[in-house]
Amino acid sequence: MPNKTIYVSDDDLPLFQRATELAGGKLSAAISTALRRYVEVEEGREEGYEEVIVKVGQGAAVRKQRFSGVLLGEWSRMVGQRTETFRVYRSRKGKYVLHLERSPEWTDSMTRDSDNWLSGLFSREALRTYLGLADSDWGFIQGEATIEVLDTFEDLRGRVPDEFYAMITDLGRRPVVEDLDI
C-alpha cells in the first residue's frame, strides 16, 4: 500500500488528533471515510443534487434522516382538522422519496395558554413561527412524518393526491440538470 504524506498546520493539529481518537487510533481510516463522504456530496452537487435532511417519526421519537436528492415538488392540503404536506424527491441513485408530514389536529389547545384565542394567535412566538423566524416543530408534538423510498415514479400514484402526481409527472422524467448547447 502506498504511503502519502499529509502536512498539517499547527492550527489543525487538534482536529487531526481528535479524529485519530474517534477512529480508534487509525487516522487513515478517518481520512478515507471523510474523503469518501466529501467526494459523494461534491459529485452529487455537480450533478444538481443537494443534501436533504427530513424529520421522521412522531413525538419524542422524531429523528432526522439524510440523503442526496432533488425536490420535484411539494403539495399541502387540509384533511379534516389537520394539514398534510407531501414532498417528492428524486434521489441520486434514481429512487423516488416521498416525505409526508401530517400536522396535529387543530384545536384550541394551540392557543390555550393565552387569555383568548385571538391573543394566542397573534402572540410573539406564534408570529415568529409564521414568519419563519422560529422553528415550527410544534407539528411533531402530536403530528407525524414518514418517509417512503420507491423504485419507480409510477409507484407514487395513489400515494400522493392525483393533482400533485399530474403536476410532477413531467419533472420525474427529466434530468436533474439539462446541459444547453448555447
Rank of each mutant, 00 (worst) to 15 (best):
V39Q: 14
E40Y: 11
E40C: 07
E40V: 08
V41I: 15
E42N: 15
E42Y: 07
E42R: 13
G44C: 05
G44F: 06
G44V: 07
R45K: 15
E46I: 08
E46N: 14
E46C: 10
E47A: 15
E47H: 12
E47S: 14
G48L: 08
Y49W: 06
Y49N: 03
E50G: 11
E50F: 12
E51S: 15
V52H: 07
V52G: 08
I53K: 12
I53G: 04
V54D: 08
K55W: 07
K55R: 15
V56I: 09
V56Y: 07
G57S: 05
G57P: 09
Q58A: 12
G59T: 08
G59C: 04
G59V: 04
G59M: 07
A60P: 13
A61V: 02
A61K: 14
R63K: 14
K64E: 13
K64T: 13
Q65E: 13
Q65I: 11
Q65S: 09
F67R: 02
F67L: 05
S68L: 15
V70T: 11
V70F: 03
V70I: 08
V70Q: 11
V70C: 06
L72P: 02
G73H: 02
E74L: 09
E74I: 07
E74D: 08
S76H: 07
R77T: 09
M78R: 13
M78W: 14
M78N: 12
V79A: 06
G80F: 01
G80L: 01
Q81T: 12
R82S: 13
R82P: 05
T83I: 12
T83S: 10
T83K: 10
E84D: 09
T85K: 05
T85E: 06
T85Y: 00
F86W: 06
F86A: 00
R87T: 04
R87D: 03
R87W: 02
V88C: 04
Y89V: 01
Y89D: 06
R90G: 00
R90D: 01
S91E: 09
S91N: 04
R92C: 05
K93A: 14
G94D: 08
Y96H: 01
V97C: 07
V97R: 04
V97I: 14
V97L: 08
V97Q: 08
L98H: 03
L100F: 00
E101L: 07
E101R: 05
E101C: 02
R102Q: 14
S103C: 01
P104Y: 03
P104F: 04
W106N: 12
W106I: 14
T107Y: 01
T107Q: 04
T107R: 03
D108K: 12
D108E: 13
M110Y: 15
M110T: 06
T111H: 11
R112G: 07
R112L: 09
R112I: 09
R112Y: 11
R112E: 11
D113W: 15
D113P: 01
S114C: 09
S114L: 12
